[in-house]
Simulated assay, not measured.
Amino acid sequence: MSDRPFWAQEDFTGGPPRRVEGGIRIHAAAGAVARTWWSARFLAVLEQLGVGGRLSRGRSYARSGQIVSLDVDAGAVVALVQGTRPQPYRVRIGLRVWDKTQWRRVEQALAADAWYTAALLSGTVPPEIEELLDGLELSLFPAAGADLSQDCSCPDHTVPCKHLAAVFYVLAERCDTDPFTLLTLRGRDRDALLERLRAERDSGDDPSAPAGPAPLADLLDRFWDGAAGSAPPRPPDTEPGAVLDQVPEPSLRAGGGRLTDALRPVYRALAHPDA
């Protein structure tokens, strides 16, 4: 046994990574990982920043469930990824957090049109949010290399290494199913953001309006009306089988493969019966 710490010892080579029981994996067994425009945009931005060309190194890790744990918080994604060594590697991906002044501008802009909140709650990120943030000189996605930091405890000097790349894939798929993921990284989780939007709308009430709630009988004719100038929320731009990504993988198998993969064509056929 060497007296040197594990990270200073020679790397384990010549074999597959150690299997992880119940590890976090992406659901896409083949083909593109991103299923929504915003996760595809996230991966495209990484490509522009010189990261995307090396992401394929971690695809097999992401598909085989080598990620032991993954936590998303303001400014950072922290994960443990199991490689060939006994000790999992610690991975950290950092994204610059918006400051209080910047978030104040974002909250005012989102609260001015309740359609954005409705869209987020329905599970989608409207493309118009990019234009809105551009007007505030902000970007939901990493805007430059300095906006994104990457670190892994493995001995590989290449950035991203396969452990970082695997976490990027899992993060992109998490963005598919939870549109608040990128907003959390920028500094506001789902509950905090919705609470601030409610407070912002309440503070913007017309002071000349009559005090107290209006009688229900006076509201029935316009009960279903949205805010002036707002558009109705559109359904999430996701594949028909996206719900399969949000349920635990059943223990049942289908022809030797995963049951959820076998069910995806069925969901597509039900969504497009005339296709």
Rank of each mutant, 00 (worst) to 15 (best):
S2A: 03
Q9M: 06
E10N: 01
T13P: 04
P16H: 07
P17C: 05
R18M: 14
R19H: 12
R25P: 02
I26K: 02
H27I: 08
H27A: 11
H27M: 06
A29K: 15
A30G: 12
A32T: 13
V33Y: 00
V33T: 10
W37P: 14
L43Y: 06
L43V: 05
V45I: 06
L46R: 04
Q48M: 05
L49P: 13
V51Q: 01
G52H: 04
G53Q: 12
R54T: 14
R59G: 01
R59E: 05
S64Q: 13
G65W: 02
G65P: 04
V68W: 03
S69L: 09
D73K: 12
A74G: 00
A76D: 07
V77N: 08
V81I: 04
G83L: 07
P86I: 11
P88F: 06
Y89Q: 05
Y89V: 05
R90W: 09
G94L: 07
G94N: 04
W98Y: 03
D99P: 01
D99E: 01
K100D: 14
T101R: 09
W103V: 05
R104G: 13
R104W: 07
V106Q: 06
V106H: 10
A111N: 04
D113E: 05
W115S: 14
S122W: 10
G123K: 01
G123T: 04
G123M: 02
V125T: 14
P126K: 00
P126I: 02
P127N: 02
I129V: 09
E130V: 14
E131N: 07
L136T: 06
S139D: 10
F141D: 09
G145N: 11
D147M: 02
L148T: 05
Q150F: 00
D151I: 07
H157G: 12
T158S: 13
V159D: 06
A172G: 01
R174Q: 14
R174K: 10
C175W: 08
D176M: 02
D178P: 04
R186G: 00
R188G: 05
R190K: 15
R190L: 02
A192R: 09
A192E: 10
E195N: 15
E195A: 15
R196K: 15
R196Q: 15
R198E: 15
A199K: 15
A199M: 13
E200I: 00
R201C: 08
D202R: 13
A209Y: 07
P210W: 08
A211D: 13
P213R: 00
P213Q: 00
A214T: 06
P215A: 11
P215S: 06
P215C: 10
L216M: 13
L216V: 15
L219M: 10
L220Q: 08
L220R: 07
R222T: 11
F223N: 09
W224V: 07
D225R: 10
D225K: 10
A227H: 15
S230Y: 04
P232D: 11
P232K: 00
P233S: 11
P236S: 00
P236M: 02
D237N: 08
T238D: 06
E239L: 11
E239Q: 12
P240C: 06
D245H: 03
V247I: 11
V247W: 00
R258A: 05
L259Y: 03
T260Y: 09
L263K: 09
L263V: 12
R264M: 11
R264N: 05
V266K: 13
L270G: 10
P273E: 08
